[in-house]
Design a protein around this nucleic acid. Sequence first.
DNA 1: CTGGTACTGTAATGAGGATTACGGTTCTGG
DNA 2: CCAGAACCGTAATCCTCATTACAGTACCAG
Lengths: 302, 302
Amino acid sequence: MTETRDTASIQPDIPGDPSAGGRTDKPTLADRVTASMASLSEAERRAARALLARYPTTGMETVALFAERAKVSAPTILRFVAKLGFAGYADFRRALREEMEAQAEYPLTRPHADGKSAPFADFARSLVTTVENSLAMASPADIGRLTDLLIDERREIFLLGGDFTDPAARHLEFHLRKMRSRVRLFSAGLSRRADELADLRKRDVVILFDIRRYQQDTIRTAEIAKERGAVVALFTDRWMSDVAQVADIVIRAQVDLPSPWDSLIGLIALVETLALSIDARQWPIGRARFETIEAVRTKLMP
Amino acid sequence: MTETRDTASIQPDIPGDPSAGGRTDKPTLADRVTASMASLSEAERRAARALLARYPTTGMETVALFAERAKVSAPTILRFVAKLGFAGYADFRRALREEMEAQAEYPLTRPHADGKSAPFADFARSLVTTVENSLAMASPADIGRLTDLLIDERREIFLLGGDFTDPAARHLEFHLRKMRSRVRLFSAGLSRRADELADLRKRDVVILFDIRRYQQDTIRTAEIAKERGAVVALFTDRWMSDVAQVADIVIRAQVDLPSPWDSLIGLIALVETLALSIDARQWPIGRARFETIEAVRTKLMP
DNA sequence: CTGGTACTGTAATGAGGATTACGGTTCTGG
DNA sequence: CCAGAACCGTAATCCTCATTACAGTACCAG
């Protein structure tokens, strides 16, 4: 099953698998053990119990240790794994390891000691709930509609962030740039931006980021874009920028939390969700582009 | 070797939080690996990275497989574990297994993918845990030290992000700019950046962002900055950019999650935590600056 | 009571893996 | 340009561990 993608260990496993697609929840090995329990003999059942008691580590050790834990002999362990359908103990251990790898991430570092030594614990909690709330606030339908628009290669995409949200706009620009062509950021300077706005055509898409301390220039840009027939999408906060009045799609994130500063983290979460959505939908096309980028990249940078 | 490197800066060991002096968790094996990174050779570091990339399963397999994954020879793996202080590979594997057993419960059964109702629910959960893990990975001590440096107005601050992490660098720049003067982003173009590097003086602080697909130009920039006597701080991922070898402060975030794309969200979380830390420490000074900015702003933008 | 069967542990064996010795290569300092 | 050292991989060696053959035991049917 799991194809050994040896090269990927360090390199980003870039869009390798259509992870979004094939989500088959196979029963775990533990499930198999439980199911087979009935058809096992006395000593073998002891082996199964020992395995489940300390799953999966018991299975990762040597046969001898496994046997000791289960209070049975080594051959019994071997017969046990054979009954489970494995070719040998090595095979069994490999399956266990692969299952573990597929599992959710393993914590590399224990959370820092309780309470006092984590001075930012409160803030950390706030960040987490901000992400949760932001993801809850976004309507899947809106994300889907925006995805449709962004897949369409005939449309040119323009992005603009504000003083604070600029990084979020750039982050989205990064993803779009990797997946399609004709993506550009609006300039910060107004003269230059005027030139760029003149390029706008109907069917083009303008994506704006505007949160409180709403920026007048962003609102003006939205209005002009709308006049020129472009589709306008807006990322904003719960109070909603005035851009919302001309926007075709509005996606809101939580930006406020108990801190003197607003947070960008909710917007980042939504941007990445959107990126994943696009990726899932148009992967076949995107892959070609991605490989081209990689080829050019290695040529450019020795 | 004429260069005396301050390896102590990298070692995360003593979570000796000045405040509590309380009990701290024993560092995990992953922490030990991370700490020793600096004193490892090239091939050994590849081994370390491979281990961290698929932790802890990579360490549970045979030496041969480990070596293959790391793209090094078997003896290198042996030398690697020897440097970590283990008597042999068996000893190493036993330690890994014991650590795993001490860890929290392992899910015996996978949660069932209960439906299309929330297509992004899995991804949302991943984002949340990515934030949590990132905050857990950062040592409060390192954040504290970086905070001290950034409060010092005599030091000029330079920032640089990579293709992907650029938004994180800009986000930090935003916060710093609001709280103090003499903050600038390095240029993306190398000619211009050379000019800027020439401006560097001792005591200045260079903050770099470099995650996998590590960028050669970022590493070069770090080396040059270090040569010129600047303090170098690095935001990176768990596998650690080579910048870590010259960096005085290393802060890691989680960037990988079950998606074709890496995530910026952990870095954003850490940046905002750092911003809060600075804010908390120097608010009296910062407030004056903030009001000045507000005044100027309203004059500039009617 | 007896032969048979299913089950389990002991002990021997062979393979695969950990370990070590060594030689080639690269890097560093003089 | 050279000497030395550090580093890394190849290949040989040793040994642990998985595997298997076999014998002992309990249980059941006739």
